[in-house]
Design a protein around this nucleic acid. Structure first.
Lengths: 164, 164
DNA sequence: CCCTTATTTTGAGTAATTCAAAACAACGGC
DNA sequence: GCCGTTGTTTTGAATTACTCAAAATAAGGG
């Protein structure tokens, strides 16, 4: 009944406990009230390996394991995950939508103005909205999203080298 | 040689001073090192009338005065303006790019999660970057962009009415 | 094991934006 | 005041990211 043929490198879990890593993913999908499917597992795994990925990037990663998967399936999986709160979707200006598993902790992002690399930045306040405008013009503020822009370490080095 | 036929409602400026409104726009375009053209004047005027407009919205507004104008011209004008620092381009998630004339004062925006309306929000600090992350992961931070999300006054009223 | 319902595939369509070549117009100099 | 250079706009097409819909398929409760 076990579906995996992967050679287990570490201690074999005998009795009732199933293979941990893969099932942790399955559990979180189930916990979100969604059916567990191969594309969903693959997308979630790919997202664990490469956070801040575009749908297209995840599609490429998923194809390695699951060649039959369609790009639309990846979009569908991501839409379902995001609606269920399993993933978060961010959309930095000039970029396609990016997805990440870190969710519910109201962290922010820093984007490289040169290469587009994205890193997480901790939110000092922690709770959303972490910032309140002085004058919200009558809006009922629900969230504050902060995007930092700057040069990533690699691009700083490259620029310094080029400018010499 | 005066190009305007608009009736002047307030005090007429006699001597050397030129017609203020129209020429103020032309001057700012010239000051940015760009040639003054009809499409550019029209776009800048439309942007003064309706800040936070999409290219398409500006295109519609410009067409009223200048029927021959193409959408690509509007995109071109906006690209030139933005490169020259005459306008700023913002891109809230889920929206097409929006443009505004307010520039260089590092203010922020609040977007209605229901209808998409955008309002300016003053930045308490004023200078960019107005916020520094605790741990910038080695990035050289250039700017911090804050987007608030919430319900605009009109949508609050509509929701309250509907829910009754 | 079957049935219901959610999910994925297949195929097509759309919105926003960009690219490129040719026609045109601003504006500094003559 | 006209002219040529150079920047701008038009015209026409392509591209990217994403969404929609119908038919095929598979998950998981009973």
């Amino acid at each position: 009944m076990t579906t995996t043929e992967l050679t287990q490198t570490s201690a074999e879990v005998s009795l009732s406990a199933p293979v941990p890593a893969a099932d942790a993913l399955a559990d979180s999908i189930r916990a979100a009230g969604l059916k567990v499917t191969a594309p969903r597992l693959a997308v979630l795994q790919a997202l664990a390996d490469a956070p801040h990925s575009t749908a297209d990037r995840l599609f490429t990663a998923v194809r390695a394991d699951l060649p039959g998967t369609s790009l639309q399936a990846v979009y569908g999986v991501l839409a379902a995950f995001t609606a269920a709160g399993l993933t978060r979707r961010i959309e930095p200006a000039g970029s396609a939508a990016l997805f990440e598993r870190r969710v519910g902790d109201n962290h922010h992002h820093i984007v490289c103005t040169r290469c587009g690399t994205v890193r997480d930045v901790e939110c000092a306040v922690g709770e959303a909205p972490c910032l309140m405008p002085d004058d919200a013009a009558g809006f009922a503020v629900q969230a504050a999203e902060v995007t930092y822009w700057g040069l990533c370490p690699a691009c700083q080095v490259e620029l310094a080298t080029t400018l010499t």
